[in-house]
């Protein structure tokens, strides 16, 4: 089994001190700047999980969870930092820390390069710096960004990611300067949390329509913690609109749903299950391909319904096998036994 979404905790700022240039250590020591905000989720809520070390992760994900490989990310919110040099320095230090403290110590654990996404050129440099370091298999991009991810602004970064051979992991959350819903600032956390599916939908539309996959035909994208029950309806609409508006974007030469199925994979946790769980089978069927879903536990975050448990037992064995391991193995190009 391959677990496509587990988390390693955020580094404490002092964990990064040995990895930061001296003037930044002095800056953090002597100013109010204490680095990135710590968590997307309210502290101590179940969804925020608990702060464990490598031993706890090994036990939960590999021993009890039964994963042969787990793809991790560190949600340290580099994108919340508005000082561009601090953002770039903390991204670099966080990646070095992930490599040394986690990936080199546990070879079954793979990692995600964090980047200062607000600065696409600096992000691309960081991707290049880390691409060949053992253990990193993807680049982590929070789904909420300052500009739509398909905009030309990000095209050079997509090209770099494509050429680096890494996957682009677009993950729940983000702290750009723009509101978390398409119509503005909500008042409550519940609104922000629910609207994240619309943010994913908007980013998917943007990337397909603005030609990211035409400019970068080898780009692979995984959506993490996006949910997947909204996807088919969204693709139906996009395909329909494409038929009459595609002249404006002639690089989109195939129905948008084709691009999605070729380039995008989706983690199954957290799951937005219908009240009648058996209806999930139809929703999975509507996705139109057995290759799309990846098993994900979202360790250590705890969700109301366990996707692995609820979804997988409803599906036929062949599809279950694909979701549990084969899809991730081929998408991440992991060999049997999980070696890259």
């Amino acid at each position: 089994m391959i677990d496509a979404d587990v988390h390693i905790p955020n580094p404490r700022l002092k964990d990064l001190f040995p990895l930061l240039p001296g003037h930044w250590v002095e800056h953090f020591d002597n100013t109010m700047d204490k680095g990135a905000s710590q968590e997307y989720y309210p502290p101590r809520s179940p969804v925020a999980g608990r702060r464990g070390g490598l031993t706890e992760l090994r036990e939960a994900v590999f021993e009890q969870g039964g994963a042969e490989v787990a793809i991790s990310s560190c949600l340290y919110a580099i994108d919340s930092i508005h000082n561009p040099d601090v953002a770039a320095a903390l991204a670099t230090a966080t990646n070095d820390w992930q490599a040394m403290e986690w990936l080199e110590r546990e070879r079954r654990l793979r990692g995600s390069v964090v980047v200062p996404i607000g600065l696409p050129a600096a992000a691309a440099e960081e991707v290049e710096r880390c691409a060949d370091r053992p253990g990193f298999v993807q680049v982590l991009i929070p789904v909420r960004t300052e500009h739509p991810l398909g905009s030309r602004h990000y095209h050079p970064l997509w090209k770099t990611i494509e050429e680096s051979g890494l996957v682009a992991a677009i993950h729940f959350g983000g702290a750009p300067v723009t509101p978390p819903t398409p119509t503005g600032w909500p008042s409550f956390f519940l609104e922000e949390y629910t609207a994240m599916a619309q943010v994913f939908a908007t980013q998917l539309t943007s990337m397909i329509v603005e030609g990211v996959f035409d400019a970068c035909p080898g780009l692979r994208v995984v959506f993490l913690e996006s949910g997947f029950t909204w996807i088919s309806a969204h693709l139906w609409r996009m395909d329909k609109e494409w038929r009459n508006l595609r002249r404006l974007v002639p690089w989109v030469r195939r129905p948008p749903s084709d691009y999605f199925r070729e380039h995008v994979r989706v983690g199954i946790q957290p799951l937005d299950a219908p009240p009648e769980p058996a209806q999930l089978c139809e929703i999975v069927d509507q996705l139109g391909s057995d290759d799309l879903l990846l098993y994900a536990s979202d360790y250590p975050h705890v969700h109301a319904c366990d996707a692995g448990d609820l979804l997988l037992r409803l599906l036929p064995e062949s599809l279950r096998r694909k979701i549990r391991s084969e899809n991730a193995r081929s998408f991440y190009r992991l060999s049997e036994g999980g070696q890259p």
Binding site: G211, D214, R243, V249, P250
Partner: peptide, 24 residues
Amino acid sequence: IRSDRPGDFEYRPSREILCCPWHG
């Protein structure tokens, strides 16, 4: 109109594409 990548437009003004007035 044809294109292989965003921002490129290869255009032949042949007016041979008929666009349905109902849904385009």
